[in-house]
Design a binder for these strands. Sequence first.
DNA 1: CGTCGGATAATCT
DNA 2: GATTATCCGACGA
Length: 205
Amino acid sequence: MAPALLGCVLAHETADGLVAVELTEVEAYTGATDPASHAYRGMTGRNAIMFGPPGHAYVYFTYGMHFCVNVVCMPEGIARAVLLRAGRVTMGESLARRRRVPRRLADGPADRPPPAVPARDLARGPARLCQALAIDRTQNGLDLCSAASELRLRPAGTSAGPVPARTVEAGPRVGISVAVDVPWRFWLSGDPTVSAYRPAKSRAR
DNA sequence: CGTCGGATAATCT
DNA sequence: GATTATCCGACGA
């Protein structure tokens, strides 16, 4: 499922408008067989959506300030999902840019405005992807395959043409402290929107 | 360019 | 009480 999601488009339609992101980087989490998965030790309040029907959004809050979104991808009862790690904004770029709020809000009046965010960085990383698309707890559990849903996933390629041929690479997942060698991170080879963060948290002390 | 510390709170043990 | 599927700004090369 995970590499198959590369090139697919996730779109969120809100009162502010529409933002769409073409997925360029994902990670697979296989629940009961994966020590790094939120569902490894069974169902909890947070991960319940992972145990539900496929095609739904599993959104979680982490590090006290960030949201990340997954696509549930196995039948009801089997908790497996794909984390959406990065993408390229294809629609609503100005809206996505407006949603990126600078971290320092309490600056003196003489301060210059913060530098503009490069377009390639708007959805580069799982929390930034959610920020560009305005995804938070409100979207947890939504059916991504329903035409009536505000948050929709559509297949790769467009009505104007087929899926462009691209190379997929695989490697270890990011930011986890167990199962660090399992190569379940997938990305489009050479794509500039793929996240380039340190492979593991340097919290050794 | 790379590396590092800090922010910040829900979730789980 | 510890950990966390992260990001940003500062600093040094």
